[in-house]
Nucleic acid binder design. Structure first.
Lengths: 341, 341
DNA sequence: ATTTTTAATGTAAGCGCTTACAAATGACGT
DNA sequence: ACGTCATTTGTAAGCGCTTACATTAAAAAT
């Protein structure tokens, strides 16, 4: 096994360059405060030694970590992966590193992760959605840690948010579908408990139903967890009812794809026997056949803007204004008019 | 804006509990070295103050960070996202935190990320694939940082690896396809430069072709980058040749899905006009129609085992033995016998 | 040429924790 | 009773960096 030579320190560099540690530190952090000749001498010592600053020491002394923490429900979901990728790219661009944890959709894990990330000196936090124990907000407040919510925009929330209006997006889609003549609506939603995004989407549908004068009993909502198979199961439950829906709105594309496959398995044609719609517009939505009508969410833009906003909050001690992003309905063949009248 | 009360320190706890900082530290790190009464007194002070240890200080003093760094090409690819998720879960289980960076498939970015993660005190590193500048291996060696490679198993590599034999897996698939009677083979590969996984997959195909006595000119290989559209483009290039292939092997499922869609667009039936296969067995492979014949890779198992192995290397200063995981061919309708003779 | 102002560098005090070592306490054997 | 040994706790020295402040050198102003 290789002998481990421990990493060179600031002191080593200082000695080699014949200057004080303060000067070396300045060369690294504010080069303009050091005269060119010195800077070059220091630089060559750094190169010769292969010096890399020790992060922990730097954080401790500077009380800044250039680290941003993000806690997402899961990386396995393309929507988070994509937004997070854009978020990380922008962070990296601006000299920050990303610390990621996933909470597996469990509030208590999320809370623990928040504490961990803060203890690790995260300068700011990215959180998904608004629903969480108020205690957490107090904690963030008390510690004065900038935090931003993504994937859900709410104008008057505790934390500023960069995202879209889940309720309005689903309201529009549902209105459009009802406008097509559908009168019996099925909904396959993700679990709404502790998930404002899912809850608001369902609420948008309910409001559209009321708005269009449909009876509430024409609406059936099933809640299930995030897996293709659950979408399939929910679909067959919905279609086996006495008077099955003519359109099924799914809370996300993955559930919709599950429904779609189940339709095929049951010999039902989409959209002539039943229409199916998704939400998110992930790649999958374009690729299945029939392709899914869905709501397009600008995931990359969201990640990107969230990064900019959070960095702004961290660097200038500002409160963060949040930003609402537009979504749009993407019409594809999985949605049609209901059969007959 | 809330007054920022700065975080309570070990000292605060010690004072409140009427003990020394050493005792508080011991309560937290090796509780059995402290008598029960004291431990309880300290614990209540911790609770009352809402104390969380400062990570940077701890790292600096203990020279251990309980952080593992991972550098993956991109989070947007389901295969990495899934493996990484499993990796993170196992890490979390064992009290480690994951620091993630993505290199966007660029070696120079990867190198920079490696240095950054090490400077941040990562106790160990997870890297994807074996191809990289030897200098990096020297650096890792010199600093004595345990590192493990995943997604590619090689018995005699610089670093231990947990993964599968890309060459053999593709050799088997190609042999199977040739055994079905295909004689003109097209390959749509990811860029092989700096990517041993892609390179070895192509090599596996070449070896199978030679092994089965096919002329090398019956094999056409196109290299392209990772996007559905590129798979489509490569497919049409391949099929517009004078004597188009009867089977097209793709280096991954995403490229294969692109090829599949292009086939539909060109009015070609799969598999009767042309067979298409993928690699990875991501969800997409099951969902497209016809479903893709592909090579199943145990991504979650890989992430899980990589975590265990890396932790073992970190905690016991061992070299790491690596582990080869099995892949298997998943037969689905996108592969058939060639038309006519 | 001398004083004032400004720029460049050095000195040294922490940042919050861990841990080697020392000290104190108590249990035990003789 | 005393000394021995084990257990529990305290003391204090760093870990590698940043930065307020002191010092020195150089430039500008007189």
């Amino acid at each position: 096994m290789a002998k481990s030579r421990s990493a060179p320190t600031l002191d080593d560099v200082a000695k080699m360059a014949g200057v004080s540690t303060a000067t070396v530190s300045r060369c690294l952090n504010s080069p303009d405060r050091v005269v060119k000749a010195t800077r070059e001498r220091v630089q060559s010592a750094v190169d010769a030694l292969g010096y890399t600053p020790n992060f922990a020491a730097r954080v401790m002394a500077a009380k800044r970590s250039f680290t941003i923490g993000a806690i997402i429900p899961t990386m396995e979901n393309a929507i988070f992966a994509r937004g997070l990728q854009a978020f990380q790219e922008e962070l990296h661009q601006r000299g920050y590193t990303l610390l990621v944890s996933s909470s597996a959709y469990k509030p208590e894990i999320e809370e623990e992760q928040i504490r961990t990330l803060i203890a690790r000196g995260a300068d700011g936090l990215l959180l998904i959605g608004h629903d969480r124990d108020p205690e957490i907000y107090d904690f963030l407040d008390q510690r004065n840690i900038p935090a931003l919510v993504a994937w859900s925009y709410l104008p008057d929330s505790k934390l500023p948010s960069v995202g879209f209006d889940n309720r309005a997006a689903m309201f529009d889609l549902a209105s459009h579908i009802i406008g097509l003549g559908h009168t019996r609506i099925g909904v396959i939603s993700a679990r709404v408990d502790g998930n404002d995004r899912a809850r608001l989407r369902v609420q948008g549908i309910r409001e559209a139903v009321a708005d269009r004068g449909l009876q509430a009993n024409n609406l059936t909502v099933i809640e299930t967890s995030y897996e293709i198979e659950n979408g399939a199961k929910a679909f067959s439950d919905l279609m086996n009812a006495a008077t099955p829906p003519t359109a099924i709105l799914c809370g996300n594309d993955v559930l919709a794809v599950g429904a779609l496959r189940q339709a095929q398995k049951m010999g039902l044609d989409v959209p002539s026997d039943v229409s199916i719609t998704g939400f998110d517009d992930i790649e999958l939505a374009r690729i299945v056949s029939p392709a899914l009508t869905t709501v397009h969410v600008p995931h990359r833009e969201m990640g990107h803007k969230a990064a900019l906003q959070l960095i702004e909050m961290v660097e200038n001690q500002t409160a963060g204004t949040g930003e609402q992003l537009a979504t749009r309905i993407v019409n594809r063949p999985s949605l049609g008019k209901p059969a007959s009248g």
